[in-house]
């Protein structure tokens, strides 16, 4: 399990990185924290021609509060999120999710941008982006694009990111990262990818308004459950009729099997988690 040969570049600036992406022939894989890419390379499931190391790009680091957004540099490591007062104060949903993301040694190195770019359907961070109504800023030598999280995740490990683009930062609207949130996941072991998981935010809870419900580890991508949001909008947690509609909405979604559970089991578990998450949301 040794990685195949590749060339290595470590740009010092984003411009330098974009130039490499624009000019290099063959597959260039940006490496952020590498906590998913390195295993894939060690298994030789990924064999890029060139590895472009983003770890020297200071422009992609740091968390700031600006213009109504919490702006998180793509190379911000999970550990930095854990220690950030800004995150704790304004996006507590991220704090609730972080302990479930692998283990301390992985969080010391793994980055938010790397997780979003990889778009693992079982990962927490992409789903959080959906629940938080985040915008992903990407750049290439062609220019800057801002992509809503809702439009970013396109399929299994597939995103709106073009081959010559990298993620620079993530904008989370402060108004969309309110105190009303819930995060639940069911993992066989602490830190594992979940069998199913759910992240919810709401503007108001009595009744529930402005709900955003994101599911992960249910399909080929993180899924925003709009039908559930609609079923629950303007209802209260104890509303059995609304809950029934929400569960029906889950039933209409297409879930995918994995080693831990069939689609049918996932469907059931999402129903259970939804109930628990709503209770958490409103307490």
């Amino acid at each position: 399990m040794k990685a195949a040969e590749f060339d290595y570049a470590k740009p010092r600036t984003v411009d330098e990185a974009l130039a490499i992406l624009a000019s290099h022939e063959g597959e260039v894989r940006p490496i952020a924290g590498g906590q998913s890419l390195m295993p894939m390379m060690n298994f030789r499931l990924a064999q890029p021609d060139m590895l472009m190391d983003l770890n020297a790009l200071e422009e992609l680091q740091g968390i700031r509060d600006e213009g109504g957004f919490i702006i998180i540099g793509a190379m911000t490591r999970y550990r930095e999120l854990e220690c950030s007062e800004l995150i704790a104060a304004h996006i507590p949903l991220i704090c609730a999710a972080l302990p479930h993301i692998a283990h301390a040694a992985i969080r010391n190195r793994g980055t938010i941008g790397g997780s979003i770019a990889l778009a693992d359907p079982a990962a927490e961070m992409p789903a959080l982006m959906l629940a938080l109504e985040a915008t992903i800023t990407v750049v290439s030598s062609r220019g800057v694009r801002r992509i809503l999280a809702d439009e970013f995740f396109l399929g299994l490990y597939e995103t709106a990111l073009a081959d010559d683009e990298i993620i620079t930062e993530i904008h989370v609207p402060r108004s969309k990262a309110p105190a009303h949130f819930a995060f639940c996941e069911l993992a066989r072991r602490h830190g594992d990818y979940a069998i199913v998981g759910i992240a919810i935010t709401a503007q108001e809870i009595m009744p529930m308004r402005g709900l955003r419900v994101a599911l992960f580890s249910v399909s080929d991508r993180p899924v925003r459950a709009v039908a559930i949001e609609q079923a629950l909008e303007n209802t209260s947690v104890g509303d059995a009729g609304a809950m029934k509609l929400a569960v029906q909405a889950i039933g209409s979604m297409a879930f995918q099997d994995d080693l831990n559970a069939t689609d049918k089991t996932k469907l059931h578990l999402v129903g259970v988690l939804l109930k628990r998450a709503l209770t958490e949301l409103c307490t």
Partner: peptide, 24 residues
């Protein structure tokens, strides 16, 4: 060790084959 019906081991990694870890 989860095998497919045609004898492919589907979880030949420590991410997919679950050994007991401390938390549980």
């Amino acid at each position: 060790c989860i095998y497919s019906s045609n004898g492919q081991l589907l979880n030949a990694s420590m991410a997919d084959y679950l050994v007991p870890m401390a938390a549980e």
